[in-house]
Design a protein around this nucleic acid. Structure first.
Length: 257
DNA sequence: AGTACCACCTGACGGC
DNA sequence: TGCCGTCAGGTGGTAC
């Protein structure tokens, strides 16, 4: 989301929203087209914020915010010519300068909302602290407060916000920890390593603009396919369901718990 | 409190 | 050719 946030900041701030268009809105929100229009039309975005996988775009004046969740297939596109419009636009804002900002979300797993108070939204949503705003001792403390699998702990948005299935696999791979390990299997130095790789993986994803092809070659993320081999040791990557999620890991580098 | 499983939804893919 | 099942992903619900 940090990448979408930057994109939005560099394209869409301080311009008047002339009109609001929607499609398949009811799959993404309980808001009506009318409610969205009433809040957005005639207003300008002033600044943005992010917490975990949620993007908040505050408007001038009343300080209320548009909330976007991208759900995996979601993204933003700013464009002028209709020929440049992406597919699956669910929300389109037309600015008075003739440009459009589209929120595209093919599989409709994202979410659109409005809030008058971002902190309150975060609390109501039950989100833990953002993964990049934690220090190591807070991270350890949170992980220690949970039992069960480390993978589900990393992905638990109420514990730490911002990590999904793909990045949790990458974080565990970089930390050389097996995805089936339990939080109680891990030592202090495991947690220390895990914290470091969590930051490194998330910052790398942002730096790579979330484009998998730009990820470093020693990353596992671009090898999420059957028959691929470990970038470290060359052993074939294992695919297994861990806590119900498809997980990729190296059976050699990530020691069995 | 944890896990397991289902549903949402689309489009790609494999099998027949 | 076309139909049908399966899968990916994040979240949220239910049942054990």
């Amino acid at each position: 989301m940090a990448v979408f946030r930057r994109y939005l900041d560099s394209t869409s701030l301080h311009q008047t929203i002339e009109s609001v268009h929607v499609s398949r809105l009811s799959d993404l929100t309980t808001l009506s087209h009318r409610e969205l229009s009433d809040s957005l039309q005639g207003r300008e975005f002033e600044k943005s914020g992010r917490h975990g996988k949620f993007l908040f775009v505050s408007m001038e004046g009343r300080g209320d915010s548009l909330v976007l969740h991208f759900g995996m297939t979601g993204f933003l596109k700013y464009y002028r010519s209709p020929a440049s419009a992406p597919d699956h636009i669910r929300l389109r804002l037309d600015f008075t300068n003739g440009y459009h900002l589209a929120y595209s979300c093919q599989r409709l797993l994202g979410r659109i909302d409005l809030t008058g108070d971002i902190q309150e939204f975060v609390e109501k949503q039950g989100l833990g602290p953002d993964a990049l705003e934690l220090n190591e001792s807070e991270f350890r403390h949170l992980m220690a407060s949970k039992r069960g699998g480390i993978k589900s702990a990393l992905m638990d948005q109420s514990l730490v916000a911002g990590i999904g299935n793909v990045y949790s696999d990458e974080i565990l791979f970089q930390a050389k920890i097996h995805p089936k390990a339990s939080v109680t299997d891990l030592s202090g130095s495991d947690y220390s390593r895990l914290f470091g790789t969590m930051r490194q993986v998330l910052l790398t994803a942002i730096r790579s603009r979330v484009e998998v092809e730009r990820f470093p070659s020693h990353y596992l993320t671009q090898r999420r396919q059957e028959g691929e081999r470990c970038p470290n040791c060359g052993v074939e990557i294992d695919i297994a369901k861990v806590q119900g999620r498809t997980s990729y890991y190296c059976p050699q580098c990530q020691a069995s718990p």
